[in-house]
Design a protein around this nucleic acid. Structure first.
Lengths: 160, 160
DNA sequence: TATTGTTATACTCTATAACTATA
DNA sequence: TATAGTTATAGAGTATAACAATA
């Protein structure tokens, strides 16, 4: 005796899509907010022909002249092979140089050129301005709380 | 008269990499924290052979039986072509069905199967538990503040 | 004409194994 | 033997144009 289960019910069309279940997850809210931030950042960096990753690499090289690629990859939480293309791109554009380290000829000392430092400064200023616009409506207290929470999560790393 | 500029200085090796400039950006902190959350989520969903996107799609279909692919894509903030492969995957595994809509034969009414609903419930429970573990150390007040900030950012969308 | 789902394509980000040259 | 950088490759996520079927 086979009665129609819920799978074979006639359905009325969905008018408003609910994501109540997903909204209980912090990760879901983070992803949605991050998508907005990331899209805004991409648009902001486009005039400089930078992306989030290339901009981050450039900033870190400017701030830490002489660091090795392995150090940069570690700081950016990415694998060494994936960093190579980013560094290639920045070098090809004349924004950074790969200098051989005198005492360890396997490694490169990454240094920004004058042009790289100048572009970096302009990009950082633009991002700062766009973030201020994006975060207007979020009070300083609330932003500080959010950053506190994000830092705590970041430092948590894989918990079993 | 060409004196050595800062580019050609001898550099002492970098011992500790500083990201002070990047840390001023909310987007940078978000990305770093999101990477941790995303990695944890991926590990949590692996036993169910789900990823963040397939899990989200499944949850939304379970919660909104009969919704169209275009509605689902809109709810997930993704392009229609990219959703097709996700829905293909869920359908191939027998977790959802694509029913033709009676009044609009262009569209599909997406419905979860019994198996899909059961897997969904187990996955949601697992994610809930893992998030609780990941967020232990973040007080409820702080978490609420962070979610408030994330929601405000999400609702902001592209600001010129 | 416009819309739904689809195909094809391309770009970005990520992850792993294996190689080279140095140490 | 171990490490720094590299190559090659593959899997995901994302974005756009163009198409067939239907409205």
């Amino acid at each position: 005796m086979k009665t129609p289960g819920p799978d074979s019910q006639a359905l009325e069309p969905v008018t408003k899509v609910s994501d109540a279940t997903m909204r209980e997850f912090f990760g879901y809210r983070m992803k949605r907010a991050f998508n907005v931030v990331q899209a805004d950042l991409a648009r902001t960096l486009k005039p400089f022909e930078l992306r989030m990753l290339t901009c981050t690499a450039l900033v870190l090289i400017v701030e830490n002249p002489g660091l090795r690629q392995a150090q940069l990859a570690d700081a950016m939480d990415m694998e060494r092979p994936n960093l190579v293309v980013l560094v290639d791109e920045l070098e090809r554009r004349g924004l950074i140089r790969r200098d051989r380290m005198p005492n360890d000829r396997r490694a490169y000392a990454l240094v920004a050129t004058a042009e790289g430092r100048e572009l970096c400064a302009r990009a950082v200023a633009a991002v700062k301005a766009h973030e201020a616009a994006l975060l207007r409506g979020v009070s300083p207290d609330l932003r500080a709380a959010a950053e506190d929470a994000l830092n705590k999560i970041e430092r948590r790393r894989p918990p079993g």
